[in-house]
């Protein structure tokens, strides 16, 4: 698989808040639908690792960071709007009827 097709995502949360749970649920769903087999999601809980917030310049919770492919993109919020998330991550959606 060419490297540029691989998506490395990070989801920053602060404990098990409803917003964070929703965000994780949403992004997992979108990835399964559109990026099957070529993505990884790492969940970082800032309550456990507060020092990591500075490195990725996180100020809002939840924040999804696309580390790869570059450039870095960030989406803040519970990711409830699928279209915006896909556009934000620059993922070409797979049309439903093709599946």
């Amino acid at each position: 698989m060419p490297k540029e097709d691989k998506y490395e995502l990070r989801l920053y949360v602060a404990g098990q808040t409803p917003k964070s749970i929703t965000a994780l649920k949403n992004i997992t769903k979108y990835c399964k639908e559109h990026l099957e087999g070529k993505y990884s999601i790492e969940v970082i809980d800032l309550l456990k690792n507060p020092q990591l917030a500075e490195g990725d310049q996180i100020f809002a919770i939840p924040t999804l960071v696309r580390k790869v492919p570059e450039p870095i993109r960030k989406i803040i919020g519970d990711l409830s709007n699928e279209e915006r998330v896909l556009v934000g991550l620059n993922i070409r959606p797979i049309p439903k009827n093709n599946r």
């Binding site: 602060a14 917003k19 100020f59 960030k74 803040i76 919020g77 519970d78 990711l79 915006r84 934000g88």
Partner: peptide, 16 residues
Amino acid sequence: EIEETGEYDLEALFIR
């Protein structure tokens, strides 16, 4: 480089 969708807060800023 920032997109917004859905609810969020600035908890990360507090944590930092």
